[in-house]
Design a protein around this nucleic acid. Structure first.
Lengths: 212, 212
DNA sequence: TAGATTGTTAATCGATTAACAATC
DNA sequence: TAGATTGTTAATCGATTAACAATC
């Protein structure tokens, strides 16, 4: 199956469609149209139609899409059907919260194990995940061919951990540390930056306040 | 102070500059240039220069910006200097993790209290935050004029909670539930959707794999 | 057939990039 | 002064929107 190329904007919208369709699973009609999705989500109809067209060819004029088929196509495209393995580094508060979050398998992410330098944290469990000493990371990565690394260490250690992950063969990094990571070409860094969200919220309030 | 208007893209980049500048606080030179920031973050120089120009006028040719001044201007623009109050609804795993996260004041967010329908959770504490029964929400909101609501309830209850928040005078919602929220105009919903990040990671791996 | 919906082609809009003038 | 940096103006690029043809 060739991987179709979609724009980053489209890719960001696809999970929204999927989660919307999942909430509508119990509905009477077998079918759903791009128009209906757009109206329900308050989006432009053509945007939705184009996005869906970029990942599916099962839409039929007048009818729309078979809802269950579209859900499956979205799941497949987003990789939710075959889980990617991941390891997590940093078993602090945030790391432990992520480890105990049971929603990841639903999104195609399977955390194999966690790592921490703190000897007190090492060799404990969080939920059903082992926390191992950091020294064991390179070996486990190579053995399991894991490709995703999750960084939840304090900012000052993030680059160091990032380098170690890349040396160990990691190809994509989900970075929760609030620092910029320097990586060689071909490695993806996805920053999960709550500061960005907070900035948007705060800015909205400021603008709303100043125009009222 | 009039609130300058910046594009959403710019607004998303500003926190990155700030966190980068903060990591450089100990450096020798008092000054920092847009060029230097761009190089360090692997960004286009003109993007950085335009972004900085949109929130600051203190840049001087040949010299650049006084680092500490620029940090302050960014903090002020992003609202990190005067904290916004917020309340959180849903004291499950994610909610409790956010309640015990001590980094929010740094970003200008102050969680006043949390709410939950579960009688077992109500009237307990998480860190130094009280968890109160949901019935007390409208009253507390009106009394404290809190404007930000954080939703960490399961998806099926999110809309209901959202409606209650808006009735209680909330103007901006930080939504961690993975569902679309219907709100009246003027209310901002900022979705913190990990599914989006995971989709981007997964897509990167898929593309990299198929082109190798 | 008529109408609703898809998907495509063209037009618009906005953001990024490039080139350059201004300034210390 | 010369050179580095800012900030602006114009050109390019990509995404969104609008108009329309195709189809069931």
């Amino acid at each position: 199956m060739p991987s179709r190329c979609v724009s980053k904007q489209t890719l960001q919208r696809l999970p929204t469609y999927l989660s919307f369709l999942r909430t509508r699973s119990g509905e009477a009609s077998k079918y759903v149209s791009a128009t209906a999705i757009a109206d329900a989500l308050g989006m432009n109809q053509v945007v939705v139609r184009k996005d869906l067209a970029s990942i599916s060819t099962s839409g039929r004029p007048k009818v729309g899409y078979v809802r269950e088929d579209l859900i499956q196509e979205l799941e497949r495209f987003l990789g939710y059907d075959n889980a990617d393995d991941a390891i997590l580094v940093g078993a602090g508060k945030l790391g432990r919260a992520l480890l105990s979050f049971d929603g990841f398998p639903q999104y195609g992410l399977n955390i194999l194990a966690a790592f921490d330098t703190d000897p007190a944290a090492a060799n404990t469990r969080v939920g059903d995940k082992m926390v191992l000493p950091l020294e064991k990371l390179p070996d486990l990565c190579r053995r399991t061919k894991v490709r995703i690394g999750i960084i939840t260490v304090p900012g000052e250690h993030a680059q160091q951990v990032c380098d170690l992950l890349i040396q160990s063969g990691i190809l994509a990094i989900w970075n929760f540390a609030n620092v910029h990571l320097e990586v060689p070409p071909g490695i993806l860094v996805q920053n999960e930056n709550m500061a960005v969200s907070l900035a948007i919220l705060s800015n909205h309030l400021k603008e709303r306040f100043s125009t009222k």
